[in-house]
C-alpha cells in the first residue's frame, strides 16, 4: 500500500504477516496526529464553518477528529474560531492552560489570526489570538471554507509528524 512506502522504517515479512520496525517518534506522532480531538470552541462566524466541517458533507471525522469534547481536559486541539475580544481573553488563556499536553492550536479565520476586519476602529478586539496563546497553524479567510479548515488540519498533522522526543520544539521550521 502507498502508506508503507512513505513510512521511515523497515518491513520484515515472515509467514503469517509482517513486522514494521520504525522509531518510537514515528509511532507516537502517527498516533497523535491521526486522532486529534477538538475542543468545542466557536466564538462567532467561523464557528459555523467549523460545524459545517464536522457535519455530513465535509466530515472531519475522516481525519481523526472524531468527537468534539466540551471539556478541555479531554481535548487535544483548540480551534479558535471567531473574534477574540478583551472580555474573552482571560478565558481563552485559562482554557489553553487546562488543555492537557500535547496540545495544539489552530487560529481559524482572519479575526483569530490578526484581528481581521476588526483590525481598525475596534476597541473591543484583540488583534489575533497569538497575543494570548501560542498558535500552531494560522488559517486566514473570512470565513475560511471547510476545505480550508481541512487543509489546516492536514498541515497540523504534517507539523506533528516532525516532532521529536523528548519535549517539543514549538518554533520548529518546516522544510
Amino acid at each position: 500500500m502507498a502508506v508503507i512506502e512513505k513510512i521511515t522504517g523497515t518491513v520484515e515479512k515472515f509467514p503469517g504477516g509482517g513486522v514494521l520496525l520504525s522509531s518510537a517518534e514515528f509511532f507516537i506522532n502517527w498516533g497523535r496526529k491521526n486522532s486529534l480531538w477538538p475542543l468545542t470552541f466557536g466564538l462567532s462566524c467561523c464557528a459555523i464553518e467549523m460545524f459545517s466541517t464536522g457535519a455530513s458533507r465535509f466530515d472531519w471525522a475522516r481525519f481523526g477528529n472524531e468527537v468534539l469534547r466540551a471539556s478541555p481536559r479531554q481535548a487535544d486541539m483548540m480551534v479558535v474560531a471567531g473574534t477574540v475580544c478583551w472580555k474573552m481573553a482571560p478565558r481563552i488563556k485559562r482554557l489553553y492552560e487546562q488543555l492537557a499536553e500535547p496540545r495544539y492550536v489552530i487560529a481559524m479565520g482572519a479575526c483569530a489570526v490578526s484581528g481581521g476586519p476588526f483590525y481598525y476602529e475596534s476597541y473591543g478586539t484583540v488583534r489575533g489570538v497569538d497575543k494570548l496563546i501560542p498558535v500552531d497553524v494560522y488559517l486566514p479567510g473570512c470565513p475560511p471554507k471547510p476545505e480550508a479548515l481541512l487543509h489546516a488540519i492536514l498541515e497540523l498533522e504534517k507539523k506533528i509528524s516532525k516532532e521529536r522526543l523528548p519535549g517539543r520544539k514549538i518554533q520548529e521550521r518546516t522544510k
Binding site: 475580544c85 474573552m88 475596534s122 476597541y123 478586539t125
Partner: peptide, 10 residues
C-alpha cells in the same frame, strides 16, 4: 459581551 467588537463605534 464576550464577542463585543464595537460595531456602533466603528
Amino acid at each position: 459581551g464576550y464577542v463585543h467588537r464595537g460595531f456602533e463605534k466603528m
